[in-house]
């Protein structure tokens, strides 16, 4: 399976990665190789195998609905590069 230029650009956009022309060419080949390797797995007959969603054999792990104190506001905002009015300050979001 060969990825098209548009597909690489789309994947890069979804990951918010800016790629140069050369990188688009390069990743089109590399990503295609990876997909080709995965296609080998398609040769296995999985008709009777239910899809796995988790690797760890755990299920139905719950917590009871009890609240406990949150973190102090100053700790919550401590790592924020920009803050204002006790909020995280971010670039304008256009609706």
């Amino acid at each position: 399976m060969k990825l098209s230029r548009q597909q690489v650009e789309h994947v890069a956009w979804l990951a918010r990665l800016g790629l140069s022309e050369a990188e688009i060419e390069k990743f089109a080949v590399e990503l295609s190789n990876i997909l080709e390797n995965f296609e080998i797995l398609n040769q296995v007959d999985t008709a009777d195998v239910p899809p796995a969603t988790h690797a760890v054999p755990l299920q139905s792990v719950f917590r009871e609905d009890q609240s406990s104190p949150s973190y102090p506001q100053s700790d919550v905002l401590a790592n924020a590069p920009k803050k204002e009015e006790s909020c995280f300050k971010v670039k304008p979001v256009l609706e």
């Binding site: 609240s67 406990s68 949150s70 006790s86």
Partner: peptide, 18 residues
């Protein structure tokens, strides 16, 4: 997480944990 849901009249970012 166990942060309280009683946030409506709370100051910003006071019902928050990692």
């Amino acid at each position: 997480c166990s942060c309280s849901t009683d946030y409506v009249n709370a100051p910003p970012n006071t019902h928050v944990c990692p």
